[in-house]
């Protein structure tokens, strides 16, 4: 059963086509990743699906309701974690959740019980009387996630949930997303962190410049991209041009070499011989299986470094 059905959804801002006829479905209980660089159209897609922006073309149904004609029914059944932690600075964590519960018409009898449960689930119970502005970035994200769950939504939209968080907070938040999946929630997650999509998502759509390039499970994307095993080598110095000429297809970053191959043993034999002849020393050698990042590079032609730089990380 599909929780989200999208058909040819498109958004123009003037002449700019931010989202270009995207179509996909998300199954109930699935964690669906929407992966792409800044400006790819991730947030615009989420805004259209959550009723915050009107599509220029196309249609979509969320929880069985038309996003254009039954927007309020859609909003009743979803929770949204926007990229900015936009709860109210002047209210305490408890007051914020109480306010949101009223906006979502949570019955008075259930309201306090649900707030208590969420505060405990997200380890915010001890901070319930703290003003929102006094929380750390990580705690703010947790509070926003708790607010998104106040109406016990069928579908949760998470827009770049871990952006700007330190490593520990990001890991903890990913753990929470995992728990929400166990609770049976359908999760639509946008991210520019490839490893996050790889870890959390059942399926991933790769979107670049408003267009979906591929949709599949992370494993199938790796297979589809035809990514080979990777040998990574660190040398004592930058490799001379002669070495690079002899071993074509090497990727070079300073003193590091990377080669994609379906015959690592043969490449390793050639590489060690050539390195020895160049008078260099081999400092480290690593062989690894392809990752989603490798598949992403192959499928989009983009460097993941570009995505990190664009987000200012």
């Amino acid at each position: 059963m599909h929780s989200i059905v999208v058909e040819g959804l498109t958004k123009y801002y003037g002449d700019l086509c931010a989202v270009d006829h995207v179509s996909f479905t998300v199954d109930a209980g699935e964690v669906f990743g929407y992966l792409g660089p800044n400006g790819a159209g991730k947030t615009t897609t989420i805004r259209m699906l959550t009723g915050l922006t009107r599509p220029s073309e196309g249609r979509a149904w969320v929880a069985g309701y038309d996003i254009l004609n039954e927007t309020l029914e859609v909003k009743r059944r979803i929770g949204v974690v926007p990229e900015a932690s936009n709860l109210y600075d002047e209210l305490t964590v408890w007051e914020n959740l109480e306010f949101i519960s009223r906006l979502y018409h949570v019955p008075r009898a259930e309201r306090h019980r649900r707030i208590r449960e969420l505060l405990k689930l997200f380890d915010l119970w001890d901070r319930r009387d703290s003003r929102f502005r006094r929380l750390s970035r990580g705690l703010k994200r947790r509070a926003v996630l708790a607010a998104a769950l106040i109406n016990d939504p069928e579908i949760l939209f998470l827009d770049e949930p871990t952006t700007g968080l330190d490593v520990v907070s990001a890991r903890s938040l990913r753990g929470l997303v995992g728990r929400l999946r166990e609770m049976g929630k359908t999760i639509f997650l946008t991210t520019h962190y490839i490893e996050e999509a790889d870890q959390l998502c059942d399926r991933v759509a790769i979107i670049v410049r408003g267009r979906i390039r591929a949709i599949d499970t992370p494993e199938n994307l790796k297979l589809r991209a035809g990514v080979k095993a990777i040998l990574e080598v660190e040398l004592s110095d930058r490799p001379p041009a002669s070495l690079l000429e002899r071993l074509r297809g090497l990727e070079v970053e300073g003193r590091q070499l990377r080669v994609h191959t379906d015959n690592p043993q043969e490449i390793l034999r050639l590489l060690t011989g050539e390195i020895g002849r160049s008078g260099l020393r081999l400092l480290s050698l690593r062989s690894r299986s392809p990752t989603l990042e490798d598949a992403f590079i192959k499928l989009t032609g983009l460097s993941p470094e570009v995505m990190r730089r664009e987000k200012g990380i």
């Binding site: 959550t50 915050l52 309020l72 909003k75 949204v80 926007p82 979502y104």
Partner: peptide, 14 residues
């Protein structure tokens, strides 16, 4: 400016 108004637009309210 701070995106808090959008929080209201997200809610099931006209």
């Amino acid at each position: 400016r701070v995106g808090a108004l959008e929080r209201l637009y997200m809610a099931p309210l006209t």
